[in-house]
Simulated assay, not measured.
Amino acid sequence: MSDFFKNKVVAVTGGSEGIGKALVELLLSKGAKVSTCGRNYDKLYHLQSRFPSYPLHTVAADVSIENDCRHFIHSTIKMMGGIDILINNAGISMKALVQDASTEVMRNVMNVNFFGAAYCTKHALDTIIQRKGVIVGISSIAGYRGLPGRSAYSASKFALQGWLEALRTELLGTGVHVMWVCPGYTTSNIRYAALNEEGNAQGESPLDESGLMSPEECAVHILKAIEKKKRTMVMTFMGKETVFLNKFFPGLTDRLVKRFFFKDGKLIK
């Protein structure tokens, strides 16, 4: 087994459930020292209680609030001496047409998905540069192709990827590696917690969850990509196909995406 992550300090945002939690658990099994944050104190407490003898640091934090991000990063550095790898995983989705969605929905999604990553990265940057570490953004196919009903989500992921690409260029020659990965549809809470047009959690998934990738499998792919220092990674065939078609056949992709998300003029996914 590779010892790439052994004794490395890895900070993971949104680690109390879904992909983030799977990343935390897999990293601990690989010998990493892990710090994670989430908004739900009870879920963090449960996670901590499952690993009482492991080097795990948990912080209750809302990444949309800069002071919370600052506290998470600074407490991680204080407890563990620095940060080698930052995985900006915390995220929120939405399901609403632009015509129906409130501006609050757009603001909330952008604050979590883009500014949360920007805040944490900014406050961790000095220690990551010092350690020649890795900065990771968990993005989406929605960062390559705007998806109907996910306008704010797409905007936040486009922003995240553009920001990380600019940062990667700024840090060339420093030894820091900047990358992003794009999981496909995963069996996680993100669709149940997705905001509707009024800004409330929709409480249901529009997809058949039975055939989707598990968070645990997704975490394996993400850590392999980090270890190999991939520039970017799109995980699924559908994702790769969408990126390819959108680049070379954008008009066709418009029609295919519309057909996938709509039925009889109504948004179904």
Rank of each mutant, 00 (worst) to 15 (best):
S2Y: 07
K6A: 04
K8S: 04
A11Q: 05
V12A: 04
G14Q: 00
G15P: 12
S16T: 02
S16H: 03
I19D: 07
A22K: 03
E25C: 06
L26V: 00
L27R: 11
L28T: 03
S29L: 09
C37T: 15
C37E: 03
G38R: 08
G38H: 05
G38D: 03
R39C: 08
N40L: 12
K43M: 11
Y45P: 05
L47F: 10
Q48R: 15
Y54S: 15
Y54V: 11
V59Q: 06
A60R: 11
A60E: 11
V63S: 06
S64P: 10
N67C: 07
D68I: 12
D68M: 06
R70P: 11
F72Y: 15
H74G: 02
S75E: 12
I77G: 00
M79S: 10
G82L: 05
G82K: 08
I85Q: 12
L86S: 08
I87M: 01
N88W: 06
M94K: 05
D100G: 01
S102A: 08
S102M: 03
S102Q: 01
E104F: 11
M106Y: 12
M110I: 09
A117Q: 01
A117T: 14
A118Q: 14
Y119G: 13
K122G: 09
A124M: 04
L125C: 09
L125G: 01
T127D: 15
K132W: 04
G133S: 03
V134N: 10
V134T: 10
I135W: 00
V136W: 01
I138L: 05
S139P: 06
R145N: 06
L147E: 13
G149N: 05
R150F: 10
R150E: 13
S151E: 10
S154E: 11
S156D: 05
S156H: 00
S156E: 05
R168I: 02
E170W: 03
E170F: 07
L171T: 14
G173H: 05
T174M: 01
V181Q: 05
G184A: 11
N189Y: 09
R191Y: 14
R191N: 13
A193L: 14
E197P: 06
E198T: 13
Q202T: 07
S205T: 15
D208N: 14
S210H: 13
E216N: 10
E217K: 08
E217T: 04
C218G: 08
L223G: 08
A225I: 12
I226M: 12
I226P: 11
I226G: 13
K230D: 14
T232W: 08
M233D: 12
M235V: 08
T236D: 01
T236F: 12
M238I: 15
M238D: 15
T242W: 01
V243K: 03
L245P: 07
L245Y: 11
K247A: 15
V257N: 02
K258C: 06
R259F: 10
F260Y: 14
F262M: 14
D264T: 00
G265F: 00
